[in-house]
Write a protein that binds this DNA or RNA. Sequence first.
RNA 1: GCGGACGUGGCGGAACCGGUAGACGCUGGAGACUUAAAAUCUUCUGCCCCAUGGGCGUGCGGGUUCAAGUCCCGCCGUCCGCACCA
Length: 842
Amino acid sequence: MDGRFDPKAADRRWQERWEDERCFEADSTSDKPKTYVLEMFPYPSGRIHMGHVRNYTMGDVIARYRKMQGHEVLHPMGWDAFGMPAENAAMERNIHPGSWTRANIGAMRDQLKRIGFALDWSRELATCDPDYYGHEQALFLDLFDAGLVYRKESEVNWDPVDMTVLANEQVIDGKGWRSGASVERRKLNQWFLKITQFADELLDGLQALDRWPDKVRLMQENWIGKSTGLHFRFPLVEASGDINEIEVFTTRPDTIFGASFIAIAPGHPLALAAAAADPGASAFVDQCKAGGTSAAEIETAGKKGYLTTYSAKHPLDHDWPLPVYIANFVLSDYGTGALFGVPGHDQRDYDFANQYQLAIKRVVGASTGEAGKPIGTEAEIGPGIAVNSQFLDGMTSAEAASDVIRRAEIAGWGQGSTIYRLRDWGVSRQRYWGTPIPIIHCDTCGAVPVPRDQLPVLLPEDVSFDTPSNPLDRHPSWKNVDCPKCGAAARRETDTLDTFVNSSWYFIRFASQPSDRPFDRVEAETWLPVAQYIGGVEHAILHLLYARFWTRALKHIGQLGLDEPFAGLFTQGMVTHETYRAGDGSWLSPGEVRKDGDDWVHIESGHPVVPGRIEKMSKSRRNTIDPEPILAKYGADAVRWFMLSDSPPERDLEWSEGGIEGASRFVQRVWRLVNSVGGDAVSGDGNEALDRKLHRTIATVGEAIDGLQFNKAIAQLYELVTAIEKAPASPARDIAVRTLVLLIAPMAPHLAEECWDFLGEGGMVVDAAWPDHDPAKLIDDQVTLAIQVNGKLRDTVTAPLGLDQAAAEALALASEKVQRQLAGASPRKVIVVRDRLVNIVL
RNA sequence: GCGGACGUGGCGGAACCGGUAGACGCUGGAGACUUAAAAUCUUCUGCCCCAUGGGCGUGCGGGUUCAAGUCCCGCCGUCCGCACCA
């Protein structure tokens, strides 16, 4: 055979064969060891982008490699298909979100198939299918029955123009991202999932996730934000209505005698009482509410307080009154929305005290001798020995803290407790394109679950998007139903579930999909937990925390016996590209510019172009490269190869023309090599060096794939190809070529099949076994010894393996270059590291 | 501010447990094949110098060691996450 490898024909041929022979359909009843490989499923935006290609290629390599190792592999794909872009498209183009979404899914499925991923398409699912969201409604009701779902009034970001709730991420500088209208804080009845009930479990569970990046575990730990300390109360000197005390939380009970003021949040009930009675307080509260919560605004606002007419009594000394301030830096939704200020040992309190001339008292010192030393220009935050603190004096901070907690509990003015930063998960969205919340509101019976036999609660098709606000709420008849309990006229919940609910259990449904229930426990547990989950680090908290919670909630209600859904997690880097700007500051796409010497010019106008930073491919920067034409030009394997080759997978990969060209060259090189097999093979002496290289490569490529170090695997394969090319024709060389085909198969599967077929091996590479390496062949009987003089390399010599100290020393001293360095002197000391080096010290 | 990661040629990056720094790829130079080009092959490619040799080199400054990209101390820089969290 001659000529070039034709990826277009080969890609098609093998993709069809794999599909016809159902190569990647996972058998839940198989006896083989089971491996579940999963990449985060995509939102069907309409087109696959390079980030998807990189993500799914990594997962595909693992899946194919495990399959070759004899595992039964589950590697599914589906669509995170609910969400706002579909509704936006509906509003802009007057098409139904469902038809827009399904068309996108169709297009993206074709694109994924074109890349030849080893996916089990028989298990494909889309979260917008009633067959999926109906089961989700059942699970929601199971959690509801277990008391893990509740309804509460809470503050939301309300866009008064679009008449909808916005997520925090959709509020930019206090304005709605689409409408540009100033976002209002509004109180709405919302459904919540009790994730806080699992806060401790979710925190402790992180310990066991040793195949997760430390970074992600740390982010989740911080997000959960566990603090232990003391909850206690300051009685008011004079009660305000029925408020007669202020409850605070502190992590430093040991500093209780350092208190100089009480600060309450602008939203605190006492602040509202003050505002009602005092115009000054009212104005201050309004001012705080108007101020934004962005970092910059907080920075510039500084610490401001308003001195109320109230004062509080210290719980350990009722003759010690403390002023009560309303302060802009106190968060109403953290702790109790009130705190006591200890300026000596908290920087924020110190700043506040300085501004309002409050006492700055030392209650912690390096030793008892420091009791009289004033606090300097900064608060002293660290632990030490309690001073100026009555019965606590002389104790360490830790001792003092537990002593205060003990006394508070005995005397009844406080109790030791733990608080979390984590909030319950608000899942209500005033949106159409989501899972309808299966609840019916009845005036007499309250919130009543939809009976199971009436699930799924389907989304109505006949909805209009010509005006903002929730189409479900506007629909003339959908929400009107009878109460399942009393039969009286009632109405459906018109909120839908947050899309993160959809992605909190899809990996379970992939593993098991009976039609009559969400999943079969036994079947699901044969696959779960996911052995290797791969996705972007942007989901480090939300999705990955919600999925962990959902899994534990299912365990809690006895539906699944699993603590953690994802045993291994890998967060891959982004695909980046240089950015370009025209003279007027507008962004230009890579296709619109051309390099002219060292400069860039706009092709059309010839104007100079300013190249900018290398950034994540994004529409707004116009630095995207569409995978489709690249696939058409170079074929799937070259694209896959490049996605894996240049950068370590956890780091960003810069797209480059040179990179894809290099990958394409490699594909052709392998094809030429395979075509050179056989012929006039010289029999006789096998190529020992090549054999060793081959076995070393089998070992290291396997290790590299196991460790998701694809770039290293690829470098080693390049080396092997070069070694084979240089080797004279021999049976050993032919074996090396055959083995090479197996080694590249996970990365370049179409090429591998084509080569396998050409070599007449029979069967397909997908069904072939991963080669074994012979440990004996990893060892060479010759080694290269480095010869150093005073730690500097002067020579290298070839020596037999295992040479002893004296012989190695003699060999080193025999070196002409060493003798020149010695210049007649004799070495003071000689250090020999067996089979590595000899260092002669003068 | 707090927490984390990182810093190696022209570029992306290798380097096990402290033991030959720069594997592999890209770019570039020279050559072969060709009427020519593409493709391919061979070969070189960290910097510097008084070049069969030598000096300097892993952000900067110190230290430990026979030996430091790797360990320790102190800086500088870049990126990411969280952010008035009581």
